[in-house]
Design a protein around this nucleic acid. Structure first.
Lengths: 338, 338
DNA sequence: CTGAAAGCGCTAACAT
DNA sequence: ATGTTAGCGCTTTCAG
């Protein structure tokens, strides 16, 4: 099934390729009668230009690449949905890359994206020190970071929410409810979101004149299962905290499950607050109080900014920090024994 | 930042482009010494071939497109993950397309994929009568259907699980537990999965000599919220069913929530079985008994089959129907009053 | 307003 | 074993 080309339709119209190309690109220098004719024939043959040929010249193909660790993660799928929707409205396609958090995979993906001449790359699961990011940067391809930042963020485009502030708000809320024994269930430790959220946790405690108690700091990894097993430990410790700020919603839900399993009533006997506000958190059976990242919007905004930048050939970095939102649902209450 | 080309490295090596091209394509007709040299220079300049130029000739770019209605849907994200992982191992990239179930969007995406000369398209959210699919078919591009089929499936590659059998197994299980009043909470009615699962429901009832009672057939749409509100109606009806076969897990979970809200004990007072086995269903707080589609595997297999077909230029349709698996967890039990 | 011609980076005969 | 020569389908000067 041979695809018809610009040449075919030129022949049929008794004009040159150039003319056809002109109408294709809305050049004003075409007699309206010939333009009309060309358009007709194009329609007749159901012609669509070959983007590869175009791309070979333009050195781009009207596509973005997005790199996430795992699209199965609700955070990422929402983010990617936001990015994808914007791409669609701009007429761009989207390459999806899952890295599973592995550097080698990420690098492979970056290279493949560069080879394919994507117009830009959105990194959603950057590490503090990220080789894939370095490689992409070297190539000169436009980059935008969403959701998290690397160690050295200078010069990059990014849109994030203020994670430190989010952590601060979460813990402050707990404090305002009367909690004094506030634990922190972390994410992977050397990770931007974890560090920022922990900073917020510490600041809130400090400002309230509360000391940071090491025994209330628990190392998790953002997964439900880990949070569940750590959760059971937390619940069984002597002098257990009355509340836990979980570094993300999945962890919070894991802890919630542990509470159910052990018959600990939430929020009466244990207050739990998460971070992210993934769709699952608003389920009737969960109703997690959390700090919202407006994930979809963050993705859409990220896409929009990068795409605008591409169209305007704007090379100045735009760095956007969005405010987090406290979403109060049903997993927090004043502590029982004050 | 000019990307270096085959020509640059040819010049540096004092050979012709062809030779460089040959080593690029592992042609045996290259003296090993010159091959070595070329390879060195390529490494030195960090050369990677321009896929667009290649694609222009080969009329393909080493990428697949996958069309889903919504990547945010856990079923789709798992499926896409499976497809993506296989693409990666074959060195292919993946275009992600969300249609939101809209025909016009789907058609746009199909056209854009064709323009970009993707090697093949995987359709995951096909309608019974699907214009996007028609358009893709006309273009002659290799196609594979996963998870659901259109009205006329002849000639298409596909991998699905036997949805009728799945429905049959689900209802049969309920019957074996002693249930006689078994309701069906449907998905969008004119949809392949719904039709097939409903067929299975009917067959199981018939074989057991049970009549199909219209008042026990409820029309849902695969969403949690709809299932929740229909669920409350089901629970409050006189002569309510003792069990419900939900057309998918999300619906089952919606019904589960309704039960919790109304204080109906599951499984003691109401048995619920779903379909799909999305990750959420295995959460400790949910423990939904369901029929598994092995979603990830289905995706991976789909990708593999299409990719193999592409590499072998095999045009005979392969049609694979996988068996469903009954996953017994905690939402089904014998009915209270027999 | 339109055509001719060059070229994007690479592959694929065809020579040598 | 290697070089030469055409293109792939399109855009883009440069003429006319």
């Amino acid at each position: 099934m041979k695809r018809i080309t610009i040449e075919d339709i030129a022949r049929e119209c008794n004009v040159s390729k150039s003319t056809v190309s002109r109408v294709l690109n809305n050049s004003p220098h075409v007699k309206s009668s010939t333009r009309k004719k060309v358009l007709e024939v194009m329609k007749k043959y159901n012609y669509t230009p070959n983007i590869l040929a175009r791309g070979l010249i333009a050195k781009k193909i009207g596509a973005l690449g997005v790199i996430v660790s795992d699209i199965t993660n609700p955070f990422h799928s929402l983010l990617v949905r936001g990015i994808g929707d914007i791409c669609r409205t701009y007429g761009y396609s989207l390459f999806l890359c899952n890295t599973d958090g592995r550097v080698d995979e990420e690098i492979k993906h970056v290279r493949s994206l560069i080879q394919r001449s994507v117009d830009g790359i959105i990194f959603a699961s950057i590490k503090l020190k990220d080789e894939g990011l370095e490689e992409a940067k070297k190539s000169g391809i436009p980059i935008l970071l969403v959701g998290r930042l690397p160690e050295k963020e200078e010069g990059f485009n990014y849109v994030i929410v203020d994670n430190e502030l989010g952590g601060y708000m979460a813990v402050n809320y707990l404090i305002s409810l009367g909690h004094r024994k506030i634990a922190y269930l972390s994410g992977p430790w050397d990770t931007w979101p974890n560090i920022r959220r922990f900073e917020g946790y510490k600041r809130a405690l400090e400002e309230a004149g509360l000391s940071i108690d090491k025994k209330y700091i628990f190392k998790g990894d953002f997964t439900l299962d880990t949070a569940y097993s750590i959760g059971t430990k937390i619940l069984m410790m002597r002098d257990r905290p009355t509340s836990v700020f979980c570094a993300n919603d999945m962890s919070a839900i894991g802890l919630l499950e542990a509470c159910m399993e052990l018959g600990v009533k939430v929020p009466e006997e244990m207050s739990i607050i998460g971070f992210d506000d993934i769709p699952l958190s608003s389920f009737r059976t969960i109703q997690l109080t959390t700090v919202s990242q407006s994930i979809y919007d963050q993705g859409a905004l990220a896409g929009k900014i990068l795409l605008e930048k591409l169209q305007n050939e704007d090379n100045t970095p735009t760095q956007l920090t969005l405010p987090p939102k406290l979403i109060i649902r049903k997993t927090c209450a004043p502590p029982k024994e004050v």
